[in-house]
């Protein structure tokens, strides 16, 4: 029960951070990815803050909580292709999974279309590759 409350809190911190930083505004994200014209550097500061707290906290608390190490599959062609595809979709809509889901609560039409489409894409990969990783 206590763990359930903590995990809701963790999600709420994450969602509040996305909204506070402006990352739920797809134009701000596209503004970062658009190097021509008026470049919007906000996303870099968001990544910086997140890496500082997560990376620092991970190193400090790793032993105390016996935290798992990164369970990545290593550098594979599949991973690089997936990342490239993700980047294309990200640039098209200005949505990555977190901000798209965060916008569901506000019933934004684009998010209501994007998230089910994303689920279809995910199910397709998970069927195709039996990816449980």
């Amino acid at each position: 029960m206590r763990n359930n409350l903590f995990i809701i809190l963790a999600g709420a911190l994450f969602g509040a951070g996305l909204a506070l930083s402006g990352m739920t505004d797809p134009t701000r994200v596209v503004g970062f990815l658009d190097l021509s014209g008026s470049w919007d550097p906000t996303l870099a500061f968001v990544m910086g803050g997140a890496l500082l707290v997560f990376g620092g906290g991970y190193r400090l608390l790793r032993k105390k909580f016996n935290l798992p190490s990164d369970s990545g599959d290593g550098l594979t062609k599949r991973m690089v292709m997936g990342a490239a595809l993700f980047g294309i979709g990200w640039g098209l809509g200005g949505f990555c999974p977190g901000p798209a889901i965060a916008n569901l609560g506000a019933l934004r039409t684009e998010a209501l279309i994007f998230v089910p489409a994303m689920a279809v894409g995910m199910i397709f990969v998970q069927r195709l590759f039996r990816a449980d990783s």
């Binding site: 599949r78 595809l85 980047g87 979709g89 949505f95 279309i113 894409g121 990969v125």
Partner: peptide
């Protein structure tokens, strides 16, 4: 947005992260 969602879903699961 529909196409972007499909590609993001496909790419993130293929690539193991977002």
């Amino acid at each position: 947005f529909a196409i972007a969602g499909l590609i993001v879903g496909f790419g993130t699961r293929l690539g193991g992260g977002c």
